[in-house]
Design a protein around this nucleic acid. Structure first.
Lengths: 123, 123
DNA sequence: CTAGAACCTCACATGGATGTCAGAGGCAAA
DNA sequence: TTTGCCTCTGACATCCATGTGAGGTTCTAG
């Protein structure tokens, strides 16, 4: 498929897909005229890249991790694996933090609801 | 306390503290000479602001929500409360997404470890 | 009183992912 | 073959939290 279709199917802009390629995150084969072509495989790959971006990883970091994810068959250096473990832990900490933040929002909302109930009862 | 101490205690730069004030997120009293002064209360407030930033909220959104959090006593409009509920849900979705991403990283790491074990056994 | 640290405002810089535009070429349907 | 949409590269624009530096004032310790 061409880039427009991949963009439509992943809901990622054409601009971003080209950027991913530039950053070494996404590969494409080129037709004789230079147009990019992709397979089904790239649909999932783009979605995964998006997940990693959403997890706060930079292009640079993603580029370091993707080879590991792609092929456990390669000589993925200890360093790369350690890097992955490190990002994994960072992410886990971040999740815990977000859960606390969500709890704080829940508390605030509960406080407001209680107050409203009080107002209604009094008013 | 003055801005430097607040910065040290919250591990947020002086620059950012001034920015928060500019965005209406943080209040300060000014001494006669114009220096900002803060109380213990602001320490927690800054930490909370940081949590919200980390949760992906923009200054604008935080500014909309903070009054609600501050005082359930005010006439926090239905709109503001709805906004908070909406951000809360967005955050919750985001957390679920991050957990899936963490799982994916765990899978990748497990795959690598298995592969290594195989290599060791064979080599 | 003085030196040095901390503070003030203003303003420009930065980084990273993405938007947008221009100019040119590719491809498919009428 | 023409019309219209898709794609290409390249470059500049944008957003937003934060960094940074200049030029000046304030505070505090010696």
């Amino acid at each position: 498929m061409r880039i427009g279709e991949l963009a439509a199917r992943t809901e990622v802009s054409v601009r971003s897909l080209r950027y991913y390629e530039e950053q070494g995150l996404l590969a494409s084969t080129r037709s004789a005229s230079g147009q990019r072509h992709y397979t089904e495989y790239e649909v999932e790959r783009v979605r995964f890249i998006q997940r990693l971006y959403a997890a706060g990883l930079s292009s640079r970091t993603i580029a370091e991790l993707l080879p590991c994810v792609d092929s456990p068959s390669e000589e993925n250096s200890d360093a790369a694996l350690e890097r992955m473990a490190q990002e994994r832990d960072r992410l886990s900490d971040h999740i815990a933090d977000l859960i606390r933040t969500r709890d704080a929002l829940d508390d605030a909302m509960a406080g407001n609801r209680r107050h409203r109930a009080t107002l209604r009862a009094a008013g």
